[in-house]
Nucleic acid binder design. Structure first.
Lengths: 205, 205
DNA sequence: TTGTCGTTCAAACGATCGTTTGAGCATACG
DNA sequence: CGTATGCTCAAACGATCGTTTGAACGACAA
């Protein structure tokens, strides 16, 4: 039972963990509030409903992720000597840092779950709130890969996103070994992903 | 309401669709049996429990997928003139064909959902039942990419799998346009994925 | 002290869940 | 014919769900 922070913060932290473990439907408010050490009614009091709590869990993490991505992109984009690897790093590293924060590693399971739920409302939510981030990255990729048609580029960015999501979810054959620090493992993941994605994006060039 | 086939078949078909739409927890047996046009008790009569129904949904599709993958791999592996693209095609095409069958496009959402659930029992289930397939593909990839260390190879196969899963789930920016046939779209997807993955696997060579 | 406001609490609400039950039906075999 | 077998059916079971309620609490202002 978590006893640090305000009631709202305790709920959000417990929600992120439990949603990742049991899914949005599988996680009951009774279990959630018990883990958080708060009363059952606190969720509806502070968030209005379970559904709105889910949305808050998303917003809290995605706002931070996209802010970091945009800041990282701004540091490298538009320069005459920008390397493809720099843009990929700005795209990949914030996501992996998020997925390796203390309880943040669980958020990516939450996100993967949401991708799996995958109804149009989620697509609309992401597009409306964070679509401009993808547009900025796409524009920079297009600048550095002028030989690719717009359709080709969209395809390849999609595939990079898929590889990134997979690496974040931690489901693959590759697992962090116990004798490797989280930071080292993250750096290795960034390196592998960047090299793989850069080659994939440049394919046929 | 589906009225063709036996009760068991109707349940399996409806389950695949509804699990994909609502998730394993979110899909109720009452909705499921209503869609299938069978009695509520039929699930427990024919499958024993909801959980065993879920397992049957998995087995039915994964058995077919892995059989096709192994058959395709056997046609190209071990030859002196095998191309990396041939092995990738054997890995990718059966998955995409499965995901484009009439109701099969929904199965990949089911699978993506299961990946998101992502507890160790699923990992164990996949490893025990279909691990030998991945081992055969890995061996052939290793033969064609001798310059890669074992760890590098595992990483890259993981990333290829992520890109494939993403493409199958249909969540990316790329959506099939209404004026393109399913077959054409599948062939385009195979082509994009193969080119991207081949370049990624060969990176640094 | 009294009153107010934000918050927490135990308890209960109605709805829905997976599962079980036992009667009823059809077909096949003696 | 009788009856055994495989299956379907409506109905009910207990459990658990998200949500609501109204009382109680603590801090602070009048």
């Amino acid at each position: 039972m978590n006893r640090s922070g305000s009631t709202k913060e305790r709920i959000l932290a417990a929600a992120e963990t439990l949603f990742a473990q049991r899914g949005f439907d599988g996680a009951s408010l009774r279990q959630l509030t018990s883990d958080a050490g708060v009363n059952l009614a606190a969720v509806n009091y502070h968030f209005g409903s379970k559904e709105k709590l889910v949305e808050q869990v998303f917003r809290r993490r995605l706002d931070a992720l996209n802010a970091q991505r945009l800041a990282a992109l701004a540091r490298v984009a538009g320069q005459p000597d920008t390397r493809l690897e720099d843009v990929l790093d700005a795209f990949i590293r914030p996501a992996l840092e998020l997925s390796h924060e203390d309880s943040g590693s669980l958020f990516m399971r939450v996100l993967a779950r949401a991708f799996a739920e995958h109804d149009d409302s989620l697509r609309k939510f992401l597009s409306e709130n964070y679509g401009h981030v993808m547009r900025q990255f796409t524009a920079e990729f297009a600048r550095l890969l002028p030989q690719l048609s717009k359709e080709e580029l969209y395809w390849r960015i999609d595939l990079v996103t898929g590889a990134l999501t997979h690496a974040m979810s931690g489901f693959g054959m590759i697992q962090r070994k116990s004798d490797v620090s989280e930071r080292t493992h993250r750096e290795q993941t960034v390196a592998h992903l960047t090299r793989f994605a850069a080659a994939g994006l440049r394919a046929g060039a």
